[in-house]
């Protein structure tokens, strides 16, 4: 046997509270990220991911408390992303109980930061968030001047930073390869086009990056059905699949998703949680 495909629920956290609604049976406080994390742990999630989208400096501080309280109860890997810009940010998250940190904007503005972080904490700790959008070329022009998908295969996707608001001009596949050279141990590949749409991963993007790098790729952005998870692994070549709303809103449970993956020939971990 080899490694199992990892299923990772992601919690968006703002000022210490889960932003997207979480609907679990028996969950007293659905807005508490720690309660949600404990529920996912018990359900057999393979890892947890917190994305801190804090609105304020005070909000930023609360993530350390969320991570620390989660680590007291959940004995599984925890990744924390959002606003990670300095070596000190990483150290504080690790001391709180995080195992990995996801770095986005800082990786684009200062690639050397990835090298320094990997040297300091090890490659296994450094996840680079690759937030990409399909390039649209207005100049080519479709009917009625609509934007059309660019045919240029050399640069099909562009990296965005600051939560998908700022285009960087960088090609996503090239950027991903460069981050791995710098020491990223894993890539979290999110399609900004698909995020929140429930229309499935951008499979071409996921596969282009997964096939270009030697480190594991987590597919993210757009999951609406269990088939999307299967596609991410089979066609996108991802080592792990991340989803938020299908789990938060109770559309599917973690065991349902795992059973579905397994029934489609994808090896998953079916251990009962401790």
């Amino acid at each position: 046997m080899s490694l199992k495909t990892r299923l990772i629920p992601c919690l968006d956290v703002k000022d210490g509270r889960v932003v997207k609604g979480v609907q679990f049976v028996d969950l007293i406080d659905a807005g508490d990220p720690v309660a949600a994390a404990i529920a996912y742990d018990a359900a057999g999630a393979d890892e947890l991911c917190f994305l801190d989208i804090a609105a304020s400096h005070e909000g930023r501080e609360t993530i350390f408390d969320v991570v620390a309280r989660t680590a007291e109860h959940c004995f599984m890997p925890v990744t924390v992303g959002g606003g990670v810009r300095t070596i000190e940010d990483i150290r504080k998250l690790l001391l709180s109980g995080a195992d990995k940190v996801a770095i986005n904007s800082a990786a684009v503005t200062d690639p050397d930061f990835i090298s320094r972080a990997a040297d300091k904490f090890g490659n296994q700790c450094i996840v680079v968030s690759v937030d990409a959008k399909q390039r649209l070329d207005q100049a080519v022009g479709g009917d009625n001047g609509q934007a059309v998908r660019r045919e240029d295969k050399e640069s099909q996707w562009e990296i965005y930073t600051h939560g998908g608001r700022k285009p960087s001009g960088l090609d996503a596949v090239e950027f991903a390869a460069r981050m791995v050279e710098r020491g990223a141990g894993e890539l979290l590949v999110t399609s900004m086009d698909r995020d929140g749409t429930r229309s499935g991963f951008d499979i071409a993007l996921t596969r282009a990056i997964a096939d270009a790098v030697a480190v594991p790729v987590i597919a993210s952005g757009g999951v609406g059905t269990l088939d999307h998870l299967v596609e991410g692994v089979r066609e996108g070549h991802a080592s792990a699949v991340l989803a938020a709303s299908i789990f938060h809103f109770g559309t599917f449970t973690i065991p349902q998703a795992k059973q579905y993956l397994q029934s489609h020939g994808i090896a998953v971990r079916m251990d009962r949680a401790a």
Partner: peptide, 11 residues
């Protein structure tokens, strides 16, 4: 084709 690091759950 196997990724390095060996990262994840194994028996």
């Amino acid at each position: 084709g196997l990724k390095i690091p060996h990262m994840g759950w194994n028996t």
